[in-house]
Amino acid sequence: MIELQHRATPTELLSEFVAANPQLTPADFSSVAFQPVKRQVKADLNADQGGLCVYCEKPLGPNEGQIDHIKPKDGPHGHPHLCFSYVNYAHSCINPKTCGQQKKSGLLPIEPQPGCNAEWMLSTDGTIMPIAGLSRQRRHAVVQTRDMLGLNKDANLVDERKRWLASVLAIGQAQPQDMLLFLQTAPYRHILATVLL
């Protein structure tokens, strides 16, 4: 998961839209009037996230995917007051098995933010697992977050992470001085970094 740090100044079009429409509801998020704002927000989130899906870390273009509400805008865990808050947005891929499509309106125990990867690791088989030594409560939070996002559910995603892990380990053995540079541009770089810490 990306250790997401939103830009200090939200998308200007978003701020202008919210200021001009003080009575917004979650239904307005899908309105025709909001579509140009949504495109710009998605591009800004893509830049904030280094061109990766916030949850699975697959490469994602600025016009691809969807804007996911980290805290859902509606449903049983809804936070409608955060529906138009930039810091509650993340750029997510569209895959029915994973990420925002799998999470739906669930409330994640672990959200994409600095330090979010501290309690899980990438196994050599490409699966994401809780680190050893966690309390039962923390282990449950890690497993629940991973499973809510379907991060081990898509076999292609698991296989791709396994291949990238093999590449990282090979570079670490052959050219350890190039490891940091490689990780700065690799997909899955946040979860791959858990293997090297």
Rank of each mutant, 00 (worst) to 15 (best):
L4F: 11
H6V: 11
A8G: 05
P10H: 10
E12N: 02
E16R: 08
E16L: 10
F17I: 04
V18N: 00
V18G: 03
A19L: 10
A20N: 10
Q23C: 03
T25A: 11
T25W: 11
P26A: 06
F29H: 12
S30Y: 14
S31V: 14
S31Q: 09
V32G: 05
V32S: 11
V32F: 10
Q35D: 12
P36V: 04
P36Y: 00
P36L: 05
Q40F: 07
V41D: 07
K42N: 11
N46P: 08
N46E: 02
N46S: 15
N46L: 02
G51L: 04
L52H: 09
L52S: 00
C53Y: 01
V54Q: 02
V54A: 13
Y55F: 14
C56Y: 14
E57R: 00
L60K: 01
P62R: 08
E64Y: 05
G65D: 06
I67K: 10
I70T: 04
I70Y: 06
K71S: 08
D74H: 12
G75S: 09
P76F: 10
G78A: 04
G78F: 12
H79W: 12
P80I: 06
P80A: 01
H81Q: 15
F84L: 08
F84K: 05
V87M: 04
V87A: 06
H91L: 04
I94Q: 08
I94K: 06
I94H: 04
N95W: 12
N95R: 13
N95S: 06
K97I: 08
K97C: 03
C99E: 06
Q102R: 15
Q102T: 02
K103A: 11
L107K: 08
L107A: 04
L108D: 01
L108W: 15
I110H: 14
E111S: 09
P112S: 02
Q113P: 00
P114K: 02
P114M: 03
G115P: 11
N117A: 06
A118C: 01
E119A: 00
W120T: 01
W120V: 03
L122A: 04
S123F: 09
S123D: 15
T127F: 08
I128H: 03
P130Q: 01
P130Y: 03
I131E: 06
G133H: 01
L134V: 09
L134N: 05
R136A: 14
Q137D: 15
Q137F: 11
H140L: 07
A141N: 14
V143A: 01
V143P: 02
V143S: 05
Q144P: 02
R146N: 12
M148W: 13
M148N: 14
M148P: 12
G150I: 03
G150P: 13
V158S: 03
V158E: 11
V158I: 07
R163E: 15
S167R: 10
S167L: 12
S167F: 07
S167I: 03
V168S: 06
V168W: 05
L169K: 06
A170E: 15
A170Q: 12
A170Y: 13
I171C: 10
G172N: 14
G172Y: 06
P176L: 03
P176N: 09
Q177R: 12
D178H: 11
L181S: 14
F182V: 04
A186K: 08
A186T: 09
Y188C: 10
Y188I: 11
R189M: 02
I191D: 02
I191E: 07
A193L: 14
A193I: 02
A193D: 12
T194L: 09
T194W: 15
V195H: 13
V195Q: 05
L196Y: 08
